[in-house]
Design a protein around this nucleic acid. Sequence first.
DNA 1: GACGATTGCTACGAGACCGAAGTAATCTTG
DNA 2: CAAGATTACTTCGGTCTCGTAGCAATCGTC
Lengths: 196, 196
Amino acid sequence: MAFEPAPFDVVEASRRVWLQHWAPEAASGMAVYTAILRSYQLLNDQVQQVMARHDLTFARYEVLAWLATDPESALTLSWISKTLRIPPATVTNIIDRLEDDKLVRRVPHPSDARTTLAEITARGRKVATDATEDLNSTVYEGIGLSEAERNKLIDLLAQLRTSGNEFDVERSEEVLEDVTSRGASKPRRKGRSEVA
Amino acid sequence: MAFEPAPFDVVEASRRVWLQHWAPEAASGMAVYTAILRSYQLLNDQVQQVMARHDLTFARYEVLAWLATDPESALTLSWISKTLRIPPATVTNIIDRLEDDKLVRRVPHPSDARTTLAEITARGRKVATDATEDLNSTVYEGIGLSEAERNKLIDLLAQLRTSGNEFDVERSEEVLEDVTSRGASKPRRKGRSEVA
DNA sequence: GACGATTGCTACGAGACCGAAGTAATCTTG
DNA sequence: CAAGATTACTTCGGTCTCGTAGCAATCGTC
């Protein structure tokens, strides 16, 4: 289960191969994708080790963490599917597992009989908190860049995501205000659970 | 199969949640991971669509592409496993599938009876070339950043990977020279297939 | 207010992925 | 040169994932 370093920098190797063997004009794009892929593998491996300690997968944790910080402690399955970009069938499976472990409960939606709410249990909240603290100290705080470099990286990736339409650029700001105001005393215009 | 944008920027939303609800000191690290994850999802989706057109998965393509540019047209399974960081059992499975499709052939190693070489076939080379051209034009050339920004991004991710020991930093340079000289007339000190 | 379109979720099945254990060949060390 | 350790690969079994199809509720439109 230990993470073994590759014998050399595969991103740089690929870049050189692309420059001399394939298409030079695609080399930087290829290197971006490969660098993102391998950075993802690196971090994902660490994340998974943390998740294993809490009997979770990252997908299950993600759902749990969003539920834990939701003011209603409940979200619709379709909201989860769209926001975390998890196919509906996979959401069903994830909620099934979380329910098996008593971390979440299915609740019918009060006004729309088609939709189901996932509601976090006290036990689920505890697991979410524990796993988050573990993640924070084990992985997130140890990512090896300065604060300025991290912000630059986050910014460049935001540009990449924006240009690739990874999220609804038009409406994002508006929804973000709503998310940010959670827990504050002022009433929110529209419940998060209703966004879907 | 169409890629649906998330309703808002989940990276930025998570960052705000971390700042106000969890641990502020872990917020930038969390945002880095989430940004990498979602950038990966964005690009991976595009890559997979290309792969599907060529009856490949990305893992199978990656193996094929390395074989296609190897001077011997052959690599040991263990080299593939270590370099592309694919577990041995998965390499076996990948080579099985590639062999089913006649894109690759298993060949015994000339001097070590334990090791097996995967050798690319003419058909495999054609598929690798077609898929690469498709990938280049469909995904890699269309990544939305300037050349300077791409290089900055590649550089930051290289720092991240270096600090996380994603590859053997000590020996990487030496091996890279070897990789780069492939196809050149001068004899290489040591065959790539022998690196393992 | 009825009917077609849409939305929300689930059941099913196939495939990718990979940990662990097993087999076989090679290396190491005395 | 004979164990014992190591290396290379495969087999097996389990989990996660997700495309497709189906069902049920709701919405939109005339």
